[in-house]
Design a protein around this nucleic acid. Structure first.
Ligand SMILES: [Zn+2]
Ligand SMILES: [Zn+2]
Ligand SMILES: [Zn+2]
Ligand SMILES: [Zn+2]
Lengths: 161, 161
DNA sequence: GAAAAAATTGCAATATTATAACATTTTTAT
DNA sequence: ATAAAAATGTTATAATATTGCAATTTTTTC
């Protein structure tokens, strides 16, 4: 139990590398500075496909030996990364996860496994449309939505229950 | 600005009364005890159609003079009310709101106004279906979903921007 | 290139939200 | 009446997040 999940039988180094490359590209194009600290935080967030709390990131940074950052340091980096659309915050978990499709702002939803915490970001047009119509019907103008779907991922659904 | 909103031009005492009646009925049918404290907490939650934080509820209780409850008191009451489906927690706000259709467990979504905080619970079948299909397509089995739509309510959309 | 301005980070304190652990009281069941 | 269970009180503490200000680094302006 809790070994590598289906979502993790892949070359995850590539996920991290891709995320860093995308981040550099996006920062460059927006004239934002991806400092060393911010890059380190982003790397931690991408350490797995599981949402990570700010204090967990803090600990990971501390263990790297380059000084013990305080909470504001991490929160500021996370804020920066969120504003650029490089990470998302999962409010039901007070945790952060790397964006799978950064750059352009987008509606998305999260599938969160209760068992292994692996979280998948999806951009289901059908869901977005349904939300839009639901809001429109009530004369409500959407700024953004927060959709977190909790349950069991394919791996955990098969191996437990 | 910030006067009574469209959602509030109604006989709100009736909302509160209805919520209390429903709560009593549901507790009776489930053999659960709606104690005085729990009823007081539920009444506070229903004071408006805006989500209320636990510590705000705590203050309101304290101001009633019947003793100064501590945080666990409020959190326990809220947990009880949540388990019975009488209140929902909005995780993006760390706040609680009375359920509009208590009793039966249900999928629902929330429309949260950024301006006036008035929050409407809806149970849009189209959204539920879209979420189900989205999960099914990815072989994910849903336990529950958390859908919070943030934007501007009809009242605030008209009077600002 | 030096000075000024802006952005980033460090740091200490504190705010906010939530829970753990255990004592006391109230209610229910025997 | 007594025992068991449920609810509440109380204290302390955990977990998450922010404020305010100082120091540093980077960028801009001259
Ligand atoms: Zn990966
Ligand atoms: Zn899983
Ligand atoms: Zn009302
Ligand atoms: Zn509004």
């Amino acid at each position: 139990m809790s070994g590598p999940t289906a979502y993790e039988r892949h070359d995850h180094h590539r996920c991290i590398d891709d995320a860093l490359l995308a981040a550099r590209r996006i920062c460059k194009s927006k004239g934002a500075r991806l400092t060393e600290l911010r890059e380190r935080v982003l790397t931690k967030v991408w350490q797995s496909h599981r949402p990570l709390g700010a204090y967990a990131i803090l600990e990971m940074l501390a263990k790297e030996g380059l000084g013990h950052p305080a909470p504001p340091t991490v929160y500021r980096a996370l804020d920066f990364l969120q504003e650029l659309g490089l990470v998302h915050r999962l409010s039901s978990l007070n945790a952060y996860i790397g964006c799978d499709d950064p750059g352009k702002p987008h509606d998305c939803q999260f599938l969160i496994c209760r068992q292994c915490q692996v979280t998948v970001e999806v951009a289901a047009a059908e869901v977005s449309k349904a939300l839009s119509r639901c809001a429109e019907k009530r004369d409500f103008s959407i700024d953004h939505s927060n959709v977190e779907i909790v349950g069991y991922c394919p791996n955990c659904r098969d191996h437990t229950q």
